[in-house]
Design a protein around this nucleic acid. Structure first.
Lengths: 342, 342
DNA sequence: TTGTAAGCGTTATCAC
DNA sequence: GTGATAACGCTTACAA
């Protein structure tokens, strides 16, 4: 039972040729119904299973697509992957997962292995450190569809599925203004990354549009972690004229901020309001729930998959798509001054 | 730039044969250093990249392994996958992700496609509904290593990496007893699944070992969801002699329980203690943090990968491994009567 | 040290 | 309708 059955085995058994078997299994109309049935029956009988590697070599299509993310153990990315898988599974595609940990070398390496594996497409969230586009050009040179989601870079021939990060930052900040916050700080991550840059710009614009002063000193770039958020706010509050709210581009940082505030005796939301970004599950579950901007990762994953499918369908139409999803602000306890939680 | 470069292309350019090119690229010692260098240089130059599909067809090894989980957007599974990827990536393996949503048909389908894709191994958390082992036998028949993690089934030739669920249930229950709870209920999920059965048995044994009565009426089987936990506890509390604690085999149910308790005016942990299972991130982040049993998913994933690697290394030694990890109880606010939170 | 040729399992292009 | 054969890109005996 250890040997794998090929179409030759079943051809031999039936005294026909492998070509006929192949045709019969693929429902080629030129094959008589009689042999078709016979072949299918014996194939079933012998536990035949098509070797898709051989098919991939022959056809150049592997029915496999590569997905590259910074890391998989973040709800945001896991959910995107789920969306991609849900959408692509019915079409017989497999998903190969690669993590980059935001390292450029890992990203290049992953692209190489995915190309070598003859994937039919690469869907990726490009890492901050990926500065040269030349490596990505290799993908396009091989005629492999490339699509960015969430973290993109502008590149000819590459479709993107992102969220309107500017609008997200704007909405969050405007909300803080509307509930009466006067001095709103912004905690963010490395702004060479477009997503953080745009959220920041949304923040800034909201301030200006509402006649508030924009002061660069109120903007802090941190590592994307709980600890850094906590430390940063504790330091910040020591200053002579501390803020009364923070819009954070990261939920993890927002969480740290809130814990820091409470450890210093501040009441949230009475003394200080906080809004995060990403709508990570814990923001909702916390007893003092955190306001956050939802990015709809499931929809983002599904949309990315759909864009890929379209691109494959009419690969002549090389027009790149730029899908931008609208973020949604969830107002919760951490910023509920007059308005109620939702 | 659209054509893919093969070893033939570079052979032609150098007026040698493809075999020599192949050997040179693979550092075959019989090739002169001179040609080796030459070949490697021109390969680099021509942007050659090995076609791993051809290699897979030739060698029968795809350097790809399949991972099957109920769903990827649960922190527990995402973290396991991360552990597997982290461990296997250095060895050049790719990970194909499949979701089953606990559906038997999906599981069978995924196994078929993975086998057709010629994966070098399948690591899976078997779903509750997968009653027949015959489908899984197909994997072994093809000589493809099969390893179960977390949710296993006893099967000859299959290694398993699990957690000691019995110990987890026992520890959680014993802790509740130790802090003075008198009537401890148990909320669980479908106990035809071994993990839930064992957690239940640990619960039962702990009661008996401490001279407490075991009453089946205090055990409820629910869907694994927040809503069901909330509804169940609210109903339960209506009874004449309600419990004063619940050990839940699911963190999501535990979360629902706590919200239900508070909506009915109970104080946690003063009036009622709760312990969950899985140590999902939110249990820690909540202001009223939830005690929970940690399953060490990262370690579980890594261990599973290691067992796979060992199995591949000495495939003659067909001895199956049974690794059982020790769970750890995290005592937090939801069950901190006399003892302090950790 | 290198060339020749077969083979991995399919499918596609000719023939008949 | 079916058979023979080449081809996908690579590795590997076997020769030379």
């Amino acid at each position: 039972m250890k040997k794998k059955i090929t179409i030759y085995d079943i051809a031999k058994k039936l005294n026909i040729t492998a070509a006929t078997v192949s045709r019969a299994l693929n429902d080629n109309p030129k094959i008589s119904p009689k042999t078709k049935e016979l072949v299918k029956a014996t194939a079933e009988n012998m536990n035949y299973e098509q070797n898709r590697v051989a098919l991939a070599l022959k056809s150049g299509k592997s029915n496999t697509i590569g997905v590259i993310v910074p890391r998989i153990d973040r709800d945001f990315f896991a959910t995107i992957i789920k969306g991609i898988e849900d959408e692509l599974h019915p079409y017989g595609y497999h998903i190969i997962i690669c993590q980059t940990y935001d390292l450029k070398e890992r990203e290049i390496e992953n692209i190489t292995t995915l190309l070598n594996a003859q994937v039919d497409g690469i869907l990726m969230s490009i890492s901050n450190s990926m500065t040269e586009v030349s490596e990505l050009q290799r993908v396009l040179n091989k005629n492999v569809p490339l699509i960015f989601f969430d973290r993109k870079r502008d590149m000819e021939g590459v479709s993107t599925v992102t969220i309107d990060d500017f609008a997200g930052g704007y909405k969050a900040t405007e909300h803080l203004i509307n509930i009466g916050c006067k001095k709103i700080a912004h905690f963010t991550v490395d702004r060479t990354s477009e997503i953080y840059k745009l959220r920041f710009e949304g923040y800034k614009q909201a301030l200006l549009d509402h006649g508030l002063e924009y002061n660069p000193e109120n903007v802090l770039e941190l590592e994307n972690s709980y600890d850094d958020g906590k430390k940063a706010i504790e330091k910040f509050l020591m200053s002579s004229n501390p803020p009364d709210a923070v819009f954070s581009s990261s939920d993890y940082i927002a969480l740290g901020i809130i814990q820091g505030l409470r450890s210093m005796g501040y009441n949230v939301p009475e003394d200080f309001c906080v809004v995060g970004f990403s709508n990570e599950p814990f923001t909702k579950f916390m007893e003092l729930s955190i306001s956050s901007v939802e990015q709809f990762p499931l929809e983002m994953g599904k949309t990315t998959a759909k864009v890929f499918l379209e691109q494959v369908r009419d690969n002549n139409g090389q027009v790149e798509k730029k899908v931008v999803l609208e973020p949604k602000l969830h107002i919760r306890m951490s910023s509920s001054k007059e308005i109620n939680a939702s």
